[in-house]
């Protein structure tokens, strides 16, 4: 099963080249990796640039995946010799694989920031953020129900991601490198809000996975997402 999931992930990466909605994902990548650091002057000193990029690259990749590789069971897999429990195992495994891989990438980036001078809370914070963003990303891809709800959830996720960007910026631009007490408080509040949002989104995951293993409901979901 692990092989199947890993192959599915690689296939998704290859599919990214031909994704139907590339603009959203690529916009955020360019924004995170070029526009934002230029705006905030992160590239002025090499140490700041290393810290920023080590934090932002896993984050940008996570956003790119969220936009371009929806969590799904490929259509062909519904016609392959698998039964519903195997498909459920596949989609659950895919969730864990994606979150695990992205969190590991985030942790690796955070370790680089630590080596470059970030403090321990900042390093832990970055890792936790990548984890939470991955969870939210999974749930947004599985948006369902009515078009209105889908939109609300999409906007919610967009806000969450924007807050994360602010957080990452603060964390690597000195937020955890000796910032004032009120700044720490703001970041802590944002972190708590993000944690709540991630918990809320994760609540949808069970229903979403149940829908994903049935062709009929998965098909309805895709049609609704396309109509938004």
């Amino acid at each position: 099963m692990f092989q199947m999931i890993a192959r599915g992930y690689l296939t998704d990466l290859k599919n990214m080249r031909t994704a139907e909605r590339p603009a959203f994902g690529y916009f955020w990548v360019v924004y995170c990796l070029i526009v934002l650091p230029l705006m905030l002057g992160y590239f002025e000193a090499p140490r700041k640039a290393v810290i920023y990029l080590a934090a932002a690259i896993p984050f940008a990749y996570d956003i790119l995946q969220m936009g371009l590789c929806p969590l799904r069971i490929p259509e062909m897999m519904f016609l392959c010799p698998l039964d519903a429990p195997m498909r459920m195992q596949y989609i659950r495994g895919t969730c864990l694989f994606r979150v695990g891989l992205h969190t590991a990438a985030g942790a690796a980036g955070a370790m680089v920031t630590l080596a470059a001078g970030n403090d321990v809370p900042g390093t832990v914070g970055l890792t936790v953020n990548i984890f939470l963003t991955s969870v939210i990303g999974l749930c947004v891809q599985g948006a369902r129900d009515t078009i209105g709800r889908t939109t609300v959830r999409g906007i919610g996720a967009g806000l969450g991601v924007s807050l994360q960007l602010i957080y990452v910026s603060a964390a690597v631009s000195g937020g955890f490198l000796g910032q004032k007490r009120w700044e720490q408080a703001v970041i802590a509040v944002m972190q708590a809000l993000f944690l709540l949002a991630a918990g809320r989104y994760a609540g949808y995951l069970g229903a979403m996975l149940r829908e994903a293993v049935s062709y009929e409901t998965a098909e309805k979901r895709v049609k609704k997402q396309r109509s938004v």
Partner: peptide, 22 residues
């Protein structure tokens, strides 16, 4: 016996079944 049936069934459907990037 879903697996038994699927092993022996082939389908051609109007939707896109295969991976675009491969």
């Amino acid at each position: 016996q879903e697996i038994w049936i699927r092993e022996r069934t082939g389908a051609v459907l109007l939707e896109e079944l295969f991976e675009r990037g491969l």
